[in-house]
Structure formats: structure tokens, C-alpha cells
């Protein structure tokens, strides 16, 4: 099953929701709010959500986008779910390292590797 959205593509693989973020830039607050609403809606529907967010297409992110991910992560944990971030470009990964967010998120190189870590 596949569902398209202007800013993301959502697929389901063996009980895991894979969300590919299709914007090259996740910077401004309006876009971030839209992405956040969509992701929070998907999490709300799931009982014990398992999510992979694929950042392969994303070249730029702002601190507001990081905040959105932190809020999403908390919500997933509250529902005893699991969240993986995958395909993060090296320049953006450096932002995660500088902010130490690589320590709170589980980050994998690819969606395939993320799916293997989700039991």
C-alpha cells in the first residue's frame, strides 16, 4: 500500500511505516508544521508504532526540524513504539553530532538496515 503526499511518501513494510521525506530542504516553519502534523497523525493511529524516517533526499534542515523530530520521538516512545532515522546525509549528520542528538536517536545508514533493527 502506498500513499503519496507532496512532502513525503508513506509506505508500509511488514508492520513498519517507512516515511520518505521528499523535500530537499526542511527549513521553514510552515513546511515543518505540515510534516509534523502528518507524522503525528500517523503515530496517533498506530498502537505500538514502528517508524523509519528516510532522509536520503534531504540536504538541509533547520533547528526547528530537529525540534519536530524530538517531539515525534517522545510521542513514539509514549506509545511504546520505535523510531529510526535513516539515510542522513553526512553534512546533516554533523548537525546531529554537534547537537548530540545522535545520542538520543537511533540512526542507520539505510532504510534496509533500519528495518532489520526493528523487531
Amino acid at each position: 500500500m502506498q500513499q503519496d503526499h507532496p512532502r513525503m511518501t508513506v509506505t508500509s513494510e511488514g508492520g513498519v511505516t517507512v516515511v520518505e521525506l521528499t523535500d530537499r530542504k526542511i527549513l521553514d516553519e510552515v513546511n515543518i508544521s505540515r510534516i509534523s502534523e502528518r507524522l503525528q497523525g500517523l503515530v496517533a493511529k498506530a498502537e505500538s508504532p514502528k517508524f523509519v524516517l528516510d532522509f536520503s533526499s534531504v540536504m538541509h534542515m533547520s533547528s526547528s526540524a530537529l525540534g519536530m523530530l524530538i517531539t515525534l520521538h517522545k510521542r513514539v516512545r509514549e506509545k511504546k513504539g520505535q523510531l529510526r532515522l535513516s539515510g542522513i546525509q553526512p553534512a546533516i549528520y554533523e548537525v546531529f553530532v554537534i547537537t548530540r542528538l545522535n545520542e538520543i536517536f537511533e540512526i542507520t545508514e539505510s532504510v534496509e538496515k533500519a528495518l532489520k533493527t526493528l523487531s
Binding site: 525540534g67 519536530m68 548537525v95 554537534i98 547537537t99 545520542e103 538520543i104
Partner: peptide, 21 residues
């Protein structure tokens, strides 16, 4: 400082730090 343990999971407060970085 958004990188100290107690602030790590706060969703805001990273913009100024990133500009400096």
C-alpha cells in the same frame, strides 16, 4: 546550552548554538 544532558530532549534552543558552530 542545548547539549547538556538535561536539555538534550528539549525541542527548542539550538538555533543560536548552531550559528556559532
Amino acid at each position: 546550552d542545548p547539549t547538556v544532558d538535561e536539555n538534550l530532549e528539549k525541542p527548542t534552543g539550538r538555533g543560536v548554538m548552531l550559528m556559532h558552530a
